[in-house]
Design a protein around this nucleic acid. Structure first.
Ligand code: MN
Ligand code: MN
Ligand code: ZN
Ligand code: ZN
Lengths: 133, 133
DNA sequence: ACTGTTATTGCAACTCATTTTCAATAAGCC
DNA sequence: GGCTTATTGAAAATGAGTTGCAATAACAGT
């Protein structure tokens, strides 16, 4: 029962994500991966990301256009992002304002909460200065 | 300058959304629309939804798979949903816990907040009973 | 009601992220 | 090294959403 194999491709995907200090889409990861491992297939990148997400090593979010983004999961704090509509920069928003809220909901509605998705949109300081927003 | 025309198709999309007490995807709306107006085009549904969203009559959210859902906008309160992973039911979550949070962020980071996206996932009471979750 | 302008439509083709299929490959246990 | 099979590469398929364009119909002006 040799369940999981530690392939070059899996290591690469994980290391790209570790070295990039920011969340990346599967497409971005693939483009970087090809530079170091020219025959890697797009599907391989997707499969490994899916895998890493399901075992909790990587966390997944979604852009407004439906495209997923991925980042290394931090065990002892889950993050959300503020996303600038100008430059697309994603700024960590480390304190989750929903921990208590979830508990209240569970209590009052009988709904069993497993997780949530939250992102905040707007314009970063930089873009506001440039575009006078 | 006869900017906007009030077409049958637009009325239909809007009325389907009004009569359904729940958010629907473009696909669901299209399938219902065809029953009453057999030649309506999928693109027409999409175009009208886009239009209604941009003028604030309809609000738009996104499922975990990237598919958009739409519902009639309520002017004086914006809603979020708790979404059951079992039966896909979407339960209104009327009080937004982020109004204050947004202000704090703006103040502390210089980020100009234009909006946010929030949904809570889990299992409704019904599904918990059935599946013993 | 008739006419002309043009916003909107229907349809088909397209885009693009993601998934699937399947034969070929390579991890990792012996 | 040899065997088993998880994983891969390549290509095709999927599916939501978009786009180009000629035909249509809303509606303002008459
Ligand atoms: Mn959170
Ligand atoms: Mn809110
Ligand atoms: Zn910015
Ligand atoms: Zn349910």
């Amino acid at each position: 029962m040799s369940a999981v194999r530690n392939t070059k491709q899996k290591q690469l995907v994980l290391s790209l994500l570790k070295n990039s200090g920011r969340p990346m889409t599967a497409g971005e990861i693939y483009r970087l991966a090809v530079q170091q491992y020219p025959n890697i297939a797009k599907s391989t990148v997707y499969r490994n990301l899916e895998n890493l997400v399901s075992r909790g090593e990587v966390s997944q979010g979604m852009h407004q256009n439906g495209e997923s983004f991925y980042s290394i999961a931090d065990e002892n704090r889950h993050l959300h992002y503020m996303i600038c509509k100008g430059c697309k920069m994603m700024i960590d928003f480390p304190k989750c304002p929903l921990s208590n809220v979830e508990r209240e909901i569970a209590k009052s509605s009988g709904f069993y909460v497993t997780g949530h998705s939250l992102q905040i949109y707007g314009y970063c300081k930089n873009c506001r200065d440039k575009a006078k927003i």
